[in-house]
Design a protein around this nucleic acid. Sequence first.
DNA 1: TATTGTTATACTCTATAACTATA
DNA 2: TATAGTTATAGAGTATAACAATA
Lengths: 145, 145
Amino acid sequence: MDDPILSSAAYLLFKAGHYVHLEIEKGLAELDLSPREMLVLSFVDHHAGLSQQELSERLGLDPTIVVGLVDGLEARDLLTRSKDPGDRRRNVLALTTAGAALRKQAVVSFEALQANFLEPLSATDRDRLRRLLAEVLEPRVPWLR
Amino acid sequence: MDDPILSSAAYLLFKAGHYVHLEIEKGLAELDLSPREMLVLSFVDHHAGLSQQELSERLGLDPTIVVGLVDGLEARDLLTRSKDPGDRRRNVLALTTAGAALRKQAVVSFEALQANFLEPLSATDRDRLRRLLAEVLEPRVPWLR
DNA sequence: TATTGTTATACTCTATAACTATA
DNA sequence: TATAGTTATAGAGTATAACAATA
């Protein structure tokens, strides 16, 4: 493989991102969750009282996409929407008990899927990869730090 | 950032793949090329006489997508379609002089965009990242090796 | 009967703009 | 007048199935 593009870090990054998304998506289907739904559950759990706006910024999703995601999760009683008393334009999102339980399952599943994806790498190399990616993303997505 | 998902290698991989694609796409627009069109030009150049079928397999693109890509590149006289004399069902693709020239430009542009994307990393770390990604992808995309 | 390339079409995904309710 | 959330809709991107030409 001497192709300067197909063997480049950029192309491999793109491909790896695509494959890992596919595998996580397929695995999470057993819990009836899309990767994005898992992200929302996880994010709500770790950032209590955040608004949909903040969520859409942090996850890089269009606000209109978030509406649909929250609709679906609310209909399944996995989270609740409530008006922020301090600013009634804003929705405050919170996980229900069922939502918190499902999120826990999702994290377990996610980590198993990730371990399977990274299986060719040693534990040291997995962490090395994670840190390299974090370094590259840091200037673009500051709140990931 | 203690979120087990948002700080995971898998999520960072997904995000990084997304961002690098965006930046390459934006940069290549100056040459009126999409990332995929660049891939096709590069691949045809490095694998003389390959069919559209082979191209779609190697690039992970649906054959019907390849038809459209080749249509566009042929209309711009960047490559030629010709029937394989040994098997007249197959199209043999080849770059024109203009196509080869544009590909060269695209590679230069691509490498500058990639360097900019990986700017936070040292040369050693860029190569380390590339090798880690190649290792992870190897069992999934054997022909990348 | 199988395979390559092609077309047409239906489906999904996404963003845009317009609306409401609050501030 | 500006902002958070919502809705409706149009556009892009994709895959599916059916087709023609060749093996």
